[in-house]
């Protein structure tokens, strides 16, 4: 008797659950799924822009993107490289800043306000608009053409400095790239600092008290308490940063796809490139989530 009642209750709850969630499914089908499937169809066709007529050409668009087009693959690799450098640096920097901002000190609210400000006013458009001006102003020369960031340190030739230190070519390239990125990284870390700080605040103080009673140093308690406790948030943050940098409108590959749509009016080809791009993002996000979820520590499990 009791069993039957609970069964019907859970069924009722499931029905209510569907009532809550299915509006999203309708929206998803209507506003995202249809355009998505449509793009998929375009990618196998030659699209006449005037009347949107489709001529089936099989995999020709994909072949063009992967083997013939002179710009797609280099831009794509460039985007990948930028992301591969930026994401870890943003994560490390924002975790570091979050730990510092979580400590009590005078004027903390003000400092936090300033650090979260990029969340409010960073938009690709604004940075692109003022970036070149500021770069010119800061280095005193005509650096110009800075897209997305303000490379104020470009005046110094780091590449040369590093190679004079007899480092390997790869390492000096990497370091120069990192220094170039300092400004961008600081500006892009706003949301990540917010997320990390929220995570740090949710760690119970008693854990740290225990550790300090046992004689742990701050360094030890960071690696033994903070780091494992923050690891689920870190996963969220990594995936967020990855997606944010891949879907950002100042992203070079997306810019190129956009040019193909608007300057060359080649919808089929741009759809094929979009699809290759999307598949790769999905694969990378999937692989990272898979490996990260193995080392992520969950307190409640």
């Amino acid at each position: 008797m009791k069993k039957r009642r609970s069964f019907s209750l859970s069924r009722k709850r499931a029905l209510w659950g569907r009532l809550f969630v299915y509006p999203w499914v309708i929206g998803f089908l209507l506003f995202l799924m249809i355009p998505f499937v449509q793009t998929f169809r375009y990618s196998f066709n030659d699209v006449t822009p005037a009347n949107m007529e489709l001529h089936y050409i099989g995999l020709a668009n994909f072949k063009k993107a992967l083997t013939q087009d002179a710009e797609f693959i280099p831009t794509f690799i460039d985007t990948m490289r930028t992301t591969a450098v930026e994401v870890p640096l943003i994560i490390i920097f924002s975790l570091f800043m979050a730990v510092l901002l979580n400590q009590p000190f005078k004027g903390r609210t003000l400092v936090r306000c300033i650090f979260f400000m990029p969340v409010i006013i960073t938009s690709g458009a604004l940075l692109a608009l003022i970036g070149a001006d500021i770069a010119t102003n800061m280095s005193g020369g005509s650096t110009g053409g800075a897209s997305g960031g303000m490379p104020m340190l470009q005046a110094i030739n780091f590449q040369q400095t590093f190679s004079s230190l007899r480092m390997g070519q790869g390492l000096s390239d990497l370091l120069a790239l990192i220094i170039d990125k300092v400004y961008v990284i600081i500006w892009k870390s706003g949301v990540q600092i917010v997320i990390f700080l929220a995570g740090l605040q949710s760690i119970s103080k008693s854990l740290y008290e225990c550790a300090s009673v046992e004689g742990a140093t701050a360094w030890e308690s960071f690696w033994k308490i903070t780091f494992p406790m923050i690891s689920p948030i870190m996963l969220v943050n990594i995936v967020y940063t990855l997606i944010d940098s891949f879907t950002d409108s100042s992203n070079k590959t997306l810019e190129y796809i956009y040019t193909v749509i608007y300057k060359n009016v080649d919808y089929g080809f741009s759809a094929a490139m979009s699809f290759i791009y999307f598949t790769v993002i999905l694969a990378i996000a999937g692989i990272i989530t898979f490996f990260m979820s193995k080392i992520v520590f969950y307190m409640n499990d």
């Binding site: 995202l32 355009p35 998505f36 997306l254 796809i257 749509i261």
Partner: peptide, 23 residues
Amino acid sequence: IFSLVLLTLIIPQQVIVIPQIMM
């Protein structure tokens, strides 16, 4: 369905914008 929700985050708007305008 929830994994679909997360999946939508990965789709850049540029990818689906042309059919969206047509729609």
